[in-house]
Structure formats: structure tokens, C-alpha cells
Nucleic acid binder design. Structure first.
Lengths: 329, 329
DNA sequence: CTGTTAGCGCTTTCAC
DNA sequence: GTGAAAGCGCTAACAG
């Protein structure tokens, strides 16, 4: 067995003071004489003492836990957000407790139960679909990304519709007219917004919309490509609801012997880390993952301190790379 | 304010029993009469009671926390392992506490301090470089992936050297002779093993080794490609220490107008999710992320229960895709 | 400034 | 079987 960690009691004894005093110097919770401070610090040092967060939490009546509900740990889009979130929390007393909802409402509900049991003080929703009652039941402030949820919830909303509209317009400007969109039934409001932006651009241009559905995974994008080119073989450009879809579809094109961007142009959404390294580098709408994570963390911290969180308007813009060509160019 | 969560006390009062009894029925920790069980369960139900893990931990003297030290949350290789790890832990009383070491020994040490403070009961090391004393200081069992660490540590070791050897042999069999390897100074033992395997295959074939260094990121792979082809323009095949490096290098090739696999063949390592979707699909050595995560979790649980963990020998095998061509083929 | 006294919410002897 | 009582390690009044 390992030697048990020292307790505040032992530190106090060794320093010849009361536990309360030790607590006070460690937390700066009240003025303590220079001398005692010194002795306490020495004892802490000598014993290698670190307070037990467990005991602290129980005594203070707070968990210092921040729940983070995300689809899963391996999503190339959400992972960087989680990374930024965790990073921002490092300097605070709060710890992230991240749980995967596995893209399923049922699993999300389970995750919420878990977070509830953990007594999280606030909840950050990343690409979740839960809403209403279950959230209320948690009884803690909620900060969401991408979805306008309930009343007492702060949402960081990016203008997906506008961005999708502009991405489609970009394709139109390049001379494309037979432009398809790969959407998804899975995923949250953002995905629907992108579809709407695409539709609007097409409608305004007097063009017919071509929509097929994937599931936001590479495999889904591949399948969608297959379906798309079976139904609309003359498509010259496709705007995918996310990068993973675009990348999956790109594999289909490769196998079908269609080149990008010569035969078909491709635009994605998200700008995941690997988008810039595709062949050709993928033109896509950049979602500022880092900033998103920081803003969400900031907002959660604000709410916890009773401040009104400010959710700055983050811009979505198209990153032009090499996957889009000019028609007849 | 939200209503405070009910305590065991309230449940007991409502059921007309003592808190001890409530605890007993909830934990099956002792025999309780049918009648009381019923009443207690009813009260629990009515109040929507969930025990506080905090209080439980304190009272039981254990944290149920499993530390997981990994490079960062956004690595396409480690994320899936974390995902599997977390998944395996879901059905257990243990919770994963994952902290990023940011590929830096200093940050890893900080992370360890944090985990120590959290009183984790065991530690799982994913691609970490810490070793020896700091680990001993934690005073808990350690399960590591990829690195043979200290004495009291269980390591899941895959034969990277052999796999790299075989990957290089594969390239040789395809007729390549001017084969380069992109290694890295960053990263742990695995990376060095891969270099050794490559060297051995080259030596045995009586060929000159061509080694350049990246940093395991796409950007590093790109830079390495630049350096490689400046120094050895006639290279026809490159074996990269990981997929991200290969993908970065592939961008360099694309920009340089060299096609894969016609002009240069490419082999990666890891088989990250996106490898199969590169253009062309990347031939790579598959590391079974899912299995790795599960085995590590299993091992940690075993150690915690006092059992000898069994670390099955997982195989590394080459996944042939389309990024390798035959010389003169 | 500082020690004493109560707990935080739960588990676990220890008796009955 | 079951309740009373004593903590787990720490903080937070409450008196001095």
C-alpha cells in the first residue's frame, strides 16, 4: 500500500496551529499572521500536502464541475472545441466533465442523468439535441452551441444560413448551375440552416435544388455521392453540410474517375484540421473552433459568477482553397 | 434558485427508516427486510433522489476517478482510443478524468499534479513521455500504452519495429529502392521503433536509408516532404511515422505536381479514420484504436481489483489501399 | 488574528 | 434486520 495522503489535520498539528488556520492560509480566506503563514506553508511543503478536492467540494457545497455534453470524443469538428474549452478552464477552479451523447437523444438523456448525479454547476451543450424539460430538470445554467434551446439558456449562434447562402453564391459566381447539396437528418439546427441557405441561393438564381442526404460521416458522404450522381449525373458542384461528408463524397468521385475540381467542384463546412490537407485542399466554410470553445467556456464562467454572459457574434467565412473550379474555366 | 437536491436524510425520514438503511438498500450492502426495501425505494422514487458521488467518495475513502493522460483531445489517433476507453468505463463505477499533456514533459508533470490532487485511483498513459519518479510519486497503479515505463507499470506494447519493418519490406517488394522514412523527435518510443524497423529492412536490402524528421503533425509532414525532395529528388516511396505526417507530405507532393502513387508511393502508420478517405486512400499500418482503448481500460480495472491485468498481444498489420504503386508498373 | 464547533452527505462499525 | 453514532477531509460561522 501507498502511504495515505496527508490531511489538513496533520499539517495543522505539524505547524502547531488549528486546521482552520491552515485552511485560511491555503485559501486566503482570512488574514493570518505572517509567522503562522510561514509555519503553515513549511508544514505543507514538508508533507507534500494537497487539499482533497472531494472534501473541499463537500464542505463548500459545490462541485466545481462543468458538464460538457458532446456527440463523441472523436469528432474532428468537436474535438478541437473541447480542447479549447478544456484549455480555457485550466486556469479556473472548474473542471470539465465531458460525456458523449453518441448522436442519440436517448444517450444524451443518460449523459444528463450522469451529469446531474455529478452535481455539475453548469452545462455546456455541443451539438446536442436535448431540449426543454430534461434540461430544466438539471436545474443549472446551460450554455449551448448552435441550437436555440429553452428559456434560461444562452446560445452561441452562428449564422449558418447566411454562410451556406454565400457558399452557394460562390459556386454560382464560378459559373456553376447544377449545384447539389448533401444535407443530413442527423445533427442539429445548424444543418437545417445550411440547407435553407443553399435553397435560398438556388431559388434566387432560378435554379433547381438538388438535395441528397448523408449522416455527417465520411461513409455517409460516400453513399450520398453515389446516390447523387446516379440521380443527377450532370452535377458540376456540390456543397456538403460538413467536411466529413465532403471528404467521403470526394472518395466516391475519385473512384468514379471524376476529378476535383476539373469535373466537379466541392465545398465543405467546418474547416476541420484535415480539410486543408485534402487533395486538392478543400474549400470550406470555416467555423472558428478555438474561438467557439473559448467563448462557450467564458460564457459558462460568466453565468456561474452571476454575470450576464456575452456571446460575441463569431463570423463564418469561406476559406478558398483548391477544390472549386470555374465552369468552362 | 433551484430546489436543493434531496439528501439521504430526507429519503430516510420520508420512508420512516434510518439513513443507514437507505444506504444499505441502495448499495445492497446488507440484508434489509422486503417491506423496508419497498418503502425506501418508493421514497427514493418520489423524491427523485440520487446519491452524491462526492459524499460517497469521501465516506468510502475512494475517488472512483481514473486518470488518463493523453497528448491532447484533438489528435485523430488518440481521440478514438479515448472514446473506447470512456465507453468501456461507462458500465463501471469509475469515471475517466482525461487531461492533456500537450506533447510536453512540463505540461505532463502539471497534469500529473492535477491528477494527484484529484486522488485518481489509477493512471492510464497514452502517448506520454513521463517516467520514473513523477509516476512513483503518484502512488497509484499505472497502465501505459506504447512505452515501457518503470517497474510497477503495465504496458501495452505493440510491435512497432516489426510492423515498420514489414511496411518497408512491402515497399521493397513493390520494386522500390529509393525509400525514405519521415520520423520525428517528438513522440515516444513507438516512433523510434518504427525508425529502427525501417532501417533494418533497408540495411538487409543493402539500401541506403533516407531519413528526415517531422513532428507528427500534418504541417510537419509537409515541411519534411519539402526537405526530403530537396535532398533526395529521386525518392520513389516514403514511409511516414504516422498518418498525419503522410497526409501533410501528400499535400507537398500535390503542390509539387508529383502524383501518388504514380510518381511516389506513400505508406502511413496508425490508420486514423480519415486515412481511408484520402486521395488516393492511404495504405497504412493499422493500430486498432478501439481494441487498444478497451484493453487499457480492462487492464486498469483489473489492477484496481487486485487482479493481474492481461495485456493481450494486439497485432499491427498493413492495410493495403491505393497509395502504393509498383515501380515500373 | 485564531481556535472551537458544526456540519457537507454518505458509509460503516457497533450494539441491540 | 436496523438504528445510533462516529467519522471521511475540509470549510465556515462563531466566539474570543
Amino acid at each position: 500500500m501507498t502511504k495515505a495522503r496527508p490531511t489538513i489535520e496533520e499539517v495543522a498539528r505539524r505547524a502547531g496551529v488549528s486546521p482552520a488556520t491552515v485552511s485560511r492560509v491555503l485559501n486566503g480566506t482570512a488574514r493570518v499572521s505572517r509567522e503562522k503563514v510561514r509555519v503553515v506553508l513549511e508544514a505543507v511543503e514538508a508533507l507534500g500536502y494537497t487539499p482533497s478536492p472531494l472534501a473541499q467540494s463537500l464542505a463548500r457545497g459545490r462541485s466545481y464541475a462543468l458538464g460538457i455534453l458532446l456527440p463523441d470524443f472523436e469528432s474532428p469538428f468537436y474535438s478541437p472545441i473541447l480542447q479549447a474549452l478544456a484549455h480555457r478552464l485550466e486556469a479556473t477552479p472548474f473542471r470539465p466533465v465531458a460525456v458523449p451523447g453518441h448522436w442519440s437523444l436517448a444517450r444524451e438523456l443518460e449523459a444528463l442523468d450522469f451529469l446531474k448525479a455529478q452535481r455539475v454547476e453548469a452545462l455546456i451543450l455541443l451539438g446536442a439535441t436535448v431540449d426543454g424539460a430534461p434540461l430544466e430538470a438539471l436545474g443549472v445554467p446551460v450554455v449551448a452551441f448552435g441550437e436555440r434551446v429553452g428559456e434560461r439558456v444562452f446560445s452561441l449562434l452562428l449564422d449558418n444560413r447566411e454562410a451556406a447562402y454565400r457558399a452557394t453564391r460562390y459556386l454560382l459566381a464560378k459559373g456553376h448551375t447544377r449545384i447539389a447539396h448533401v444535407s443530413s437528418h442527423r445533427g442539429h439546427a445548424d444543418i437545417r440552416e445550411r440547407l435553407l441557405g443553399y435553397r435560398r441561393a438556388m431559388r434566387e438564381a432560378g435554379l433547381e435544388a438538388r438535395v441528397v442526404y448523408g449522416d455527417l460521416t465520411e461513409a455517409g458522404g460516400y453513399r450520398a455521392g453515389k446516390e447523387l450522381f446516379a440521380r443527377f449525373p450532370d452535377t458540376t458542384a456540390v456543397f456538403a453540410a460538413n467536411d466529413q461528408t465532403a471528404i467521403g463524397l470526394r472518395l466516391f468521385l475519385y473512384e468514379a474517375g471524376l476529378s476535383v475540381p476539373e469535373d466537379v467542384s466541392l465545398v465543405g463546412f467546418d474547416d476541420i484540421p484535415l480539410a486543408a490537407y485534402q487533395t486538392p485542399p478543400l474549400t470550406t466554410v470555416r467555423q472558428p473552433a478555438r474561438a467557439i470553445g473559448e467563448v462557450l467556456a467564458e460564457a459558462a464562467l460568466a453565468v456561474l459568477e452571476g454575470r450576464e454572459p456575452l456571446l460575441p457574434k463569431l463570423e463564418l467565412f469561406l476559406v478558398e482553397r483548391r477544390s472549386v473550379g470555374e465552369v468552362g474555366g
